[in-house]
Design a protein around this nucleic acid. Structure first.
Lengths: 143, 143
DNA sequence: ATAGCTGCAAATGCTTTGCAAGGCC
DNA sequence: GGCCTTGCAAAGCATTTGCAGCTAT
């Protein structure tokens, strides 16, 4: 169960409040959908479908707005794996990804499989904000 | 001067032919624009503007189509740095990137600054196709 | 009560495509 | 000449936004 570390033991409502978001019906519903259970990778459409299936009444527009708010609040991470489609990772801790080109599936890379050696420091007035590593897995070409 | 290693010494036209593309006026013009001189990172719009400035008559649609053909031909690399906008790198050799969030600028990361440790095996029937590493540089403002 | 949400639909921005005219071999 | 390309505009997608009505505090 992801979410920020300083919100352990809090209810979904309280956790939303902690990150500065008013706990509305749809935000609570989406937060539960996303953060209860193991971490995973979803697209806006995925969430939309799941919300519908779970009986959470939300429009696609609100899904997009809410996902972005969660990202800004630091409880969700955006992952760029494919052009034209945004993936969201409910695990915001430092880790990298495998992307299955064949079916567009995103998967966590085993911890420690990627190592950053000497990181050159950023130019004046800049700092390293995040490091995205995506290991692209393609169907083994049949020769 | 990028391009595939086995085309050294060939004219732009011949090099296009080598990768299976008919050397048309616009493909030659774009190839020269992109591959003559040091490697760089561009968007479709950048290329469009440069082509216009250089007097190469090309439509935006053809720019997009051509860039994709170049990518498929292996002489250009697509880099995902921002959602909704594709960057292209004229250097297809193994290397990683710095992305300046502030101004959307893409830059090569110094060689050797990133090191991949134990790469986990790829699942049945899959192989590692490419590894994208993007180091996000943000304005060092207040945290 | 009121500032903040939500939903719908229309708008946006990047990229692709359909199809007629033109260029390369 | 035949077939691949180009160009324009229109179509597509994913995502964002404007605004009236609703809701949490």
């Amino acid at each position: 169960m992801p979410f920020t570390s300083d919100t352990v033991g809090l209810s979904t409502e309280e956790r939303l409040r902690v990150v500065g978001l008013r706990p509305t019906r749809q935000r609570i519903g989406l937060a539960r959908l996303l953060f209860d259970g193991p971490s995973r990778h979803v697209t806006a459409e995925d969430v939309f479908a799941e919300a519908a299936a779970a009986g959470v009444p939300v429009s696609l527009a609100t899904i997009y707005n809410t996902l972005r708010q969660f990202v800004d609040a630091g409880i969700l991470r955006e992952v760029l794996a494919e052009p034209g489609r945004a993936y969201f990772d409910t695990d915001v801790s430092d880790h990298h990804h495998f992307f299955h080109v064949r079916d567009g599936r995103l998967e966590d890379a085993p911890v420690g499989s990627v190592q950053i050696a000497a990181l050159p420091e950023a130019p004046e007035g800049a700092r390293i904000g995040r490091i995205d590593v995506i290991i692209r897995l393609e169907p083994a070409s049949d020769d």
